[in-house]
Design a protein around this nucleic acid. Structure first.
Length: 464
RNA sequence: GGCGACGUACCCAAGUGGCUAAGGGGACGCUCUGCAAAAGCGUUAUGCAUCGGUUCGAAUCCGAUCGUCGCCUCCA
């Protein structure tokens, strides 16, 4: 059994076979660091993170590269607006990106190369394209000669003629064709520049990803991922400029993540109707947001709503509670066929990372385990440990939606105090002092601490 | 105009030719409980935008219609 992935290149689900056995090399287009990233970006980053984690779950070694674009028009503009060097803007938001990613539970990539630190590779790449006739220099700018690459349009299914007809009227007349794109932009006053054989300037956007991907993953690698909107022109151009140089396939699989909408409208920085990742992280735990994202298949659009997040929060508790319960359940006698449930989970995920179906399998699993766990005989140690292990590998390791630490937040002093409070209240309850018991419970609730009485005693946890 | 996606219960959402249409939320019922909360169990779509067609058989394939959206320009 193997993993099947929808490949944008072929517009079909194909069996995944890595170039090197047991090893996956994947690249995901990272952020341009001119601002905090938003919840739409976050969806892509989380999805890519889960793809990477699932490959690891399936036993692959994953080399995962995500670039940080730290030189770009928007960064320069922001720097000028703030009256600071653009590098300072880039550094600030690159740090914020790593910070927010960590808060989201997104594991750091194997490496996060930066464009400005890959300059030599970009220049060499561009020089190679000039040398073999795929690119040309005009007044210090370098353009890719799209017409020279026969397969242009194979990813986005566009043809050059249509693009030329539809091109903007104010097309740059210095270009041989309106569809040619910039590999290098001539130095302008107030912009950072680098030296290149054809003159000072800075790289175009697309070339960065080609250079960084090839530098760390090789000329041909397994998977290239990114948002839907990057198919054209970004990824199309990456393929053209890469394959025009190497004459070998760039990425074997192209994965594209669906967009996140708000009120059924596209969300983007330019429209301004966006929430930053930080804003949402301040309102909901990262696990809830991840679960919310993962309840929709990665290729489908996701309409972001407050209600949806609240529903996700409630639903996720079921898995968290079971995970916690299995950690402390005494051994009983009942059994559950954990392996069968794992197979269902794997089958769902192997099918193009069908995370909603994967969760369907896990919730069915949870129900089966709960039924036995709460029944008279309880769950035997073998099933219990196997169930906890599967839950850990799926909900914690692959999805990152369940917490492993206790609900008290690991505060020893607070826990000790609470144990004392609970002990006193338990005494009151044993003496049927209901009014006092309820006052304690209500008072704690005001403070954000929830008490739950059960047959096995009283537990406390921090409320939301 | 060109290319493409989608329309499944009150909400979200899997399923793309064949057993009773997953799963989550909500609602309702029950169990547990001093009460509450939490948790657990159960119920909740003879039907998958509409109309035709292909087929022994379709949510799933084909056509038309209606509706929503995306890309073609910076964008995850």
């Amino acid at each position: 059994m193997s993993i099947a992935i929808y490949n944008t290149l072929t517009r079909s689900v194909q069996e995944f076979t890595p170039l090197n056995e047991g090893e996956v090399r994947m690249y995901c287009c990272g952020p341009t660091v001119y601002d905090y990233f938003h919840i739409g970006n976050a969806r892509s980053f989380v999805m890519s993170d889960v793809v990477r984690r699932y490959f690891e779950f399936r036993g692959y070694t994953v080399t995962y590269v995500m670039n940080i674009t730290d030189i770009d028009d928007k960064i320069i503009r922001r720097g000028n607006d703030e009256g600071v060097p653009s590098s300072q803007v880039a550094d600030r938001f690159a740090a914020a990106f790593l910070e927010d990613s960590a808060r989201f539970g997104i594991r750091p990539a194997s490496m996060h190369p930066r464009a400005t630190q890959t300059m030599d590779d970009m220049i060499a790449h561009i020089q190679g394209l000039i040398d073999n006739g795929s690119a040309y220099v005009v007044d210090g700018d370098v353009y890719f000669r799209v017409g020279s690459y026969q397969e242009y349009g194979k990813l986005s299914r566009k043809n050059i003629e249509d693009l030329e007809v539809g091109a903007r009227v104010e097309a740059d007349t210095r270009k041989e064709s309106p569809v040619d794109f910039a590999l290098w932009k001539n130095a302008k006053p107030g912009e950072p520049t680098w030296d290149a054989p054809w003159g000072k300037g800075r790289p175009g956007w697309h070339i960065e990803c080609s250079a960084m991907a090839m530098k760390y993953l090789g000329r041909t690698f397994d998977i290239h991922a990114g948002g839907n909107d990057l198919i054209f022109p970004h990824h199309e151009n990456e393929i053209a400029q890469s394959e025009a140089l190497t004459h070998q396939p760039f990425a074997k699989f192209w994965m594209h993540f669906g967009f996140l909408n708000i009120d059924n409208e596209k969300m983007s920085k330019s429209l301004g109707n966006f929430f930053t990742a930080r804003e949402i992280l301040d309102k909901y735990p990262a696990e809830v947001i991840r679960f919310y994202y993962l309840q929709t298949h990665y290729r489908s659009p996701l309409n972001f709503t407050h209600e949806g997040l609240d529903a996700a929060k409630t639903g996720l508790q079921k898995l968290q509670v079971l995970y916690d319960a299995l950690g402390e359940a005494p051994a009983g006698s009942g059994t559950v066929d954990v392996a069968a449930h794992e197979q269902r989970f794997v089958a769902a995920m192997d099918d193009d990372f069908n995370t909603p179906a994967g969760f369907g399998a896990l919730f069915d699993f949870a129900r089966d385990v709960n039924t036995v766990l709460h029944a008279e005989g309880g769950l035997d140690a073998t099933s219990r440990d196997a169930a906890r292990d599967l839950l850990h590998r799926t909900t914690v390791e692959v999805f990152g939606v369940v917490r492993t630490e206790s609900a008290g937040g690991g505060d020893k002093l607070l826990d000790d105090v609470m144990q004392l409070v609970i002990a006193l209240r338990t005494e009151a309850r044993q003496e049927k002092q209901w009014a006092l018991s309820d006052r304690i419970r209500d008072g704690l609730k005001e403070l954000g601490i929830v008490l739950e009485d059960s047959r096995d005693g009283t537990k406390w946890k921090l409320g939301e």
